[in-house]
Design a protein around this nucleic acid. Sequence first.
RNA 1: GGUCUCGUGGCCGAGCGGCUAGGCAGAGGUCUGCAAAACCUUCCACAGCGGUUCGAAUCCGCUCGAGACCUCCA
Length: 492
Amino acid sequence: MKRNLQLYNSLKREKETFVPLHETHVGMYVCGPTVYSDVHLGNCRTFMSFDIIYRYLMYCGYKVRYVRNITDVGHLLDDGEDRILKGARLQQLEPMEVVQKYTNGFHDMMRLFNTLEPSIEPRATGHIVEQIELVQQIIDNGYGYEINGSVYFDTPKFAAQTGEYGKLSGRVIEELVSESRDNLKNQDEKRHPSDFAIWMKAAPEHIMKWNSPWSVGFPGWHLECSAMSTKYLGSQFDIHGGGNDLKFPHHENEIAQNVSSCGCQPARFWLHTNMLLLNGKKMSKSDGNSISPVELITGDSEHISKAYSPMVVKFFMLQAHYSAPLDLSDEGLLAAEKGFKRLMEAIKSLNKLTSTATTGNLDNELKAIADGALTEMDDDFSTPKALAKLFELVPKINSLADGKISINEVSSEAIMYIQKIVNDLVFNVFGLKDEQDGQNSAVDGLMELILNIRQKARENKDWGTSDQIRDGLKAAGIVVKDSKEGSAWVYE
RNA sequence: GGUCUCGUGGCCGAGCGGCUAGGCAGAGGUCUGCAAAACCUUCCACAGCGGUUCGAAUCCGCUCGAGACCUCCA
């Protein structure tokens, strides 16, 4: 299915028509987590966003290779300590135990949010050889220099000769006063404050270190993405994504490394997701304005009144565009929860509809709404607008389901057409799932029996029994919904 | 301090010069044994002040406010 996709390209600062390098294949690289502690909720938003982008590209018929790395070395803290090593020290674990622990936790969380696994999930420590080769290429091409066993990227030279530095982040090198941590520590070594380390000589007590032509040391943080994207997607690929706080310095430096080693821009489209705020403010553990994914789904946080299911959280996030800041709040989640249920109920009803009509005068209107949802997705993956379209369908579906609109107004062909689009979009592209599902048939059978008994009582105008059943079920967390066609039930 | 983004109704969030966003909440109604659900109708807006335009939430300027990046963070 060939669709006309428009993507906002951060590099160009405008929307562009998406044309992949190879007609049928798409290569996409997304900066993954640094696995030194539990995954951040904002991080989850980013990966959910790219999961939907991944899924939609596949829905459009592309074969997508989605590479999302695991950073397990080289990402340093303010004091110059490696994030992984700090985690290891604090928890008295082997560095790789830390990596494994939080990688597992990250995967568990991604699974809860029903995201697909990437095609390749490479680790930085598994690609030391490639990173050393990349450093060598950069040196060979004259953009890297070694001092005392560490290798630095010559940013001013690169900027002057290529004019490529600062394009993504909109920075001018003269204005940059770099304080990147590895540089703070070795301030004297660098020729220019904006130079950054691509290979760091390790102190004797440093645990994670490897042999290299320059020293026993470890790679700079920005290096891994350059090396791994090139290895798995080629020196040029279609989409590079990440959170917008990575634009500088990480992505800017990544581009510099790629351009200086192979002479070409790595990605044609740069996509950046925006921040997740809590109650209008940036999440920050230090001032208490923070909530973790686990707290959100267990309800164990002062910021929320109850537990929210992962799908509700996901639905909430879908209501905002990935490139806009999103403000998380209890009220917002509550609203999302109701909206999500309503949508799920409507889809259930939709999937039960059957018509024998061969033509219907609502056909065009309904099909146009469904098509519209896809058109919105074509426009930079606008999930909020696509959802709005689906919600336009909800009253129509409900009216058809309860007979307020005759089913003969819609042809069987149109119903199947709409069912296909709605189900594909909601379940395959958005990756939502109906949490009411998955009940065992025992419960279904039981409920059918109970509701039949209640129906008999109602027919006999035995309101006492009828209400007793209804109230009892309510107390058990099950809501009975009566309609002309009979009674349905749903978990509260 | 520098770079940039944004300020939409009770809440969340679309909107990219003229035409309904949507969700939640509120109000009225239909249906119903009652209730819930569902359906129908409906109230509430574009931070402020100027400017451009036949016409601005949408473009420009200023003011106020918020946020991001510049320093690890998605």
